[in-house]
Design a protein around this nucleic acid. Structure first.
Length: 414
RNA sequence: CGGGGUGUGGCGCAGUUGAUAGCGCGCCCGGUUUGGGACCGGGAGGUCGAAGGUUUGAGUCCUUUCACCCCGACCA
């Protein structure tokens, strides 16, 4: 992509209506556009990051046998009444709307009911199970207060997966397998070492604990207590002596931290399947309940977390795997530099290297500053100074290290 | 929803005791520049969140309302 043609532009001024660092940086760098409180649009670079994160999540879910679907945002009332979740006293952050004829609809905030309802068409026999199905799509929640940029919005991108198992044992296996996949997702995003499986409240339909995935950060909304040795944590909201005993945790081993909930997995037992009258028949021809689990990852929230955590005084610092481009190509100088840079740009593209080419007629300082604000992992500078020696300046965003490379060394690096 | 704060060109801001708006960035034109967000000259662009009111006169005062931010509550 040539920067001269990029839809967005960077800005020197920090947006006044954002105090969250992730939102400030992402807006300044042109990744996102604020539509209203808690609702952000993704501009070309931001969408690229989002898609890259989705790609990682998708790979890991596929890897454990997940099948991707896309459920609908508009939801019929009746299936939610069957599980008694239509009532605003039960779920108070519903967005609801109406058809022209007055029929009430819900705007999707989670998808247990529709997934289970749909599975009723396909699941009859023990031979039809087990399954993981998942989707990546927008969720709508009427939060009383949106805050912290991408970290708590009213419209946000979420991956939600559901497992349907034939027995408790099968469910437990699937559940743990999903959790392993979650850890791989966080590792690949570079937040694995600071993301803890955290025991939390199981939700309204079960007495069991759920597992949250909490990424340590000062901006986190949740207070958690980490057991470093065991690599687990417990959410403050369930921190009672009784629960600690149940979980085998000692108060003395726990350190208080703040975390951002980047994922949450639940044991749903058979509450939803039973309520929606979806069962299977076992080998003996008997009707049996289906045991469910559900597994969420806040995709857009993760983008915010990464932006928040991996940034410095100059701007964003994307991990290579999700950066919108691998290389930020700066050109400095006259016609000859233009020729060289154009050529290098084409060659990088042809080799499949994603590159943002700063072909603007701007001064070097501005280009360097933008490359840093945007957080592109590598900067390659084609300068009239270096043309004669046939070298390129190569700078790593994360470390700031700069070196001069020959053409072949440059391609080897990239 | 309770408390606090803020709405003035695209962005960030100033506007004293009321007299129909100004600065920086950005943008356009010309010129000089060209390795860390250049400089000079010339321009375009706002009716001050919205509605109503007080007044000879309102960005400045009053009322209502909308939006945004922060704290809290809330967040299966």
């Amino acid at each position: 992509m040539r920067l001269s043609r990029l839809f967005t532009r960077t800005t020197k001024n920090v947006p006044a209506d954002e105090t969250a660092r992730n939102a400030q940086l992402l807006i300044q760098a042109g990744y996102i556009h604020k539509e209203m409180a808690g609702v952000y649009a993704y501009m070309p670079l931001g969408l690229k990051v989002l898609e890259n994160i989705k790609g990682i999540v998708r790979e890991e879910m596929n890897n454990i046998g997940g099948q991707e679907v896309l459920m609908t945002t508009l939801q019929p009332r009746d299936i939610w009444e069957k599980t008694d979740r239509w009532d605003e006293k039960k779920v108070d952050n519903w967005f609801k709307t109406k058809l022209a004829n007055g029929t009430e609809l819900g705007v999707g905030l989670t998808h247990e009911e529709p997934i289970v309802d749909a599975s009723g068409n396909y699941v009859n026999s023990y031979k039809d199970l087990p399954y993981y199905v998942y989707q990546i799509g927008n969720k709508f929640r009427n939060e009383l207060r949106a805050k912290s940029g991408l970290l708590r919005g009213r419209e946000f991108l979420m991956k939600d997966m559901y497992s349907l198992a034939r027995s408790q044992e099968e469910h437990e296996q699937m559940y743990e397998k999903a959790i392993e996949a979650y850890h791989r997702v966080y590792d690949r995003l570079g937040v694995g070492d600071r993301t803890y499986r955290t025991y939390a409240d199981g939700g309204i339909f079960t007495t069991r604990f759920s597992d949250e995935f909490q990424t340590l950060s000062d901006v986190g909304e949740d207070k958690i207590f980490v057991d470093e040795a065991k690599q687990v944590a417990i959410n403050e909201e369930i921190m009672t002596d009784e629960n600690l005993a149940k979980l085998g945790l000692n108060r003395d081993d726990l350190v208080e931290k703040r975390g951002v909930e980047v994922g949450n997995t639940f044991h749903l037992e058979s509450k939803y399947t039973d309520a929606l009258d979806v069962y299977y028949t076992n080998e003996q021809g008997e009707r049996r309940s289906i045991i469910m689990g559900c597994y969420g990852i806040g995709v857009s929230r993760l983008m915010g977390v990464v932006a928040e955590l991996f940034s410095d005084d100059k701007g964003l610092v994307w991990p290579e795997e999700i950066a919108p481009a691998k290389v930020y190509l700066v050109r400095i100088g006259g016609d000859e530099a233009v020729r060289h840079a154009d050529e290098l740009y084409e060659e990088l593209k042809s080799k499949g290297v994603e590159v943002l080419y700063d072909d603007r007629d701007a001064r070097p300082g501005e280009k360097f500053a933008d490359s840093e604000l945007m957080g592109i992992p590598y900067r390659v500078t084609v300068s009239d100074r270096l043309i004669e020696s046939e070298k390129y300046e190569f700078t790593t965003r994360k470390t700031g290290e700069t070196s001069e490379l020959t053409r072949s060394d440059l391609f080897a690096k990239l």
